[in-house]
Amino acid sequence: MRDDPGEPVFVRSKWGANNYVFNWRNPVGRVLIVVTLLAAIVVLGSLYAS
């Protein structure tokens, strides 16, 4: 199901041993992905500017 709120926010990564990643199928997980990317851009921009 798409956009199912019953999906967990974190799921185990298929590429690592015991890594958890944001679940893009959950709306909260999708928001966390966008917030993380924006925060990384702001931090890198502030480091570049200083």
Score class of each variant (00 low, 15 high):
11 V>R: 04
4 D>R: 03
29 G>S: 01
41 I>R: 07
40 A>T: 09
1 M>T: 00
29 G>M: 04
17 A>F: 12
22 F>C: 05
16 G>S: 15
49 A>D: 05
9 V>L: 05
20 Y>T: 10
7 E>P: 04
28 V>G: 00
49 A>Q: 07
37 L>N: 12
46 S>R: 14
18 N>Y: 11
41 I>S: 08
18 N>G: 15
23 N>A: 02
16 G>R: 15
30 R>I: 01
8 P>R: 02
30 R>N: 02
28 V>L: 11
17 A>Y: 09
44 L>T: 11
43 V>R: 09
24 W>Q: 13
4 D>H: 04
4 D>M: 03
14 K>D: 12
19 N>K: 15
19 N>W: 10
26 N>S: 04
19 N>P: 00
15 W>Q: 14
49 A>S: 09
14 K>E: 15
19 N>Y: 14
37 L>D: 06
24 W>M: 11
36 T>A: 10
33 I>S: 01
17 A>P: 09
3 D>S: 13
40 A>N: 08
39 A>P: 02
26 N>M: 01
19 N>G: 10
48 Y>G: 07
40 A>I: 15
49 A>F: 08
44 L>M: 13
5 P>S: 04
3 D>A: 11
42 V>W: 08
24 W>P: 15
23 N>L: 04
8 P>M: 01
48 Y>L: 09
45 G>L: 03
39 A>S: 12
50 S>Y: 13
21 V>D: 03
11 V>D: 01
37 L>G: 13
11 V>S: 03
45 G>N: 04
8 P>E: 03
9 V>D: 02
36 T>W: 09
3 D>K: 14
20 Y>C: 08
49 A>M: 08
41 I>V: 15
18 N>V: 07
20 Y>R: 12
22 F>I: 01
49 A>V: 07
7 E>Q: 11
32 L>G: 05
15 W>L: 15
32 L>N: 07
5 P>R: 03
39 A>C: 09
50 S>L: 14
17 A>C: 08
36 T>C: 08
10 F>Q: 07
41 I>W: 08
37 L>T: 11
18 N>A: 15
22 F>P: 03
34 V>T: 07
47 L>T: 05
42 V>I: 15
47 L>F: 11
31 V>G: 06
2 R>N: 12
9 V>Q: 04
9 V>F: 05
12 R>D: 10
31 V>L: 10
16 G>P: 01
10 F>G: 01
42 V>G: 09
33 I>N: 02
12 R>A: 11
24 W>S: 14
47 L>W: 09
18 N>F: 13
22 F>K: 01
2 R>H: 10
40 A>V: 13
45 G>F: 08
1 M>P: 07
12 R>Y: 11
1 M>H: 05
14 K>F: 06
10 F>A: 08
50 S>D: 11
32 L>V: 07
27 P>N: 02
4 D>S: 05
7 E>S: 06
14 K>P: 04
23 N>S: 04
42 V>T: 13
4 D>P: 00
29 G>V: 00
12 R>Q: 12
20 Y>G: 02
21 V>T: 05
29 G>K: 04
13 S>H: 02
3 D>G: 13
8 P>A: 00
36 T>G: 07
12 R>T: 09
18 N>D: 15
42 V>C: 10
27 P>R: 06
30 R>Q: 07
34 V>R: 10
28 V>D: 07
20 Y>L: 14
44 L>W: 14
40 A>K: 05
32 L>D: 02
1 M>L: 00
22 F>D: 03
39 A>K: 00
13 S>V: 01
20 Y>P: 03
1 M>N: 01
9 V>H: 03
10 F>C: 05
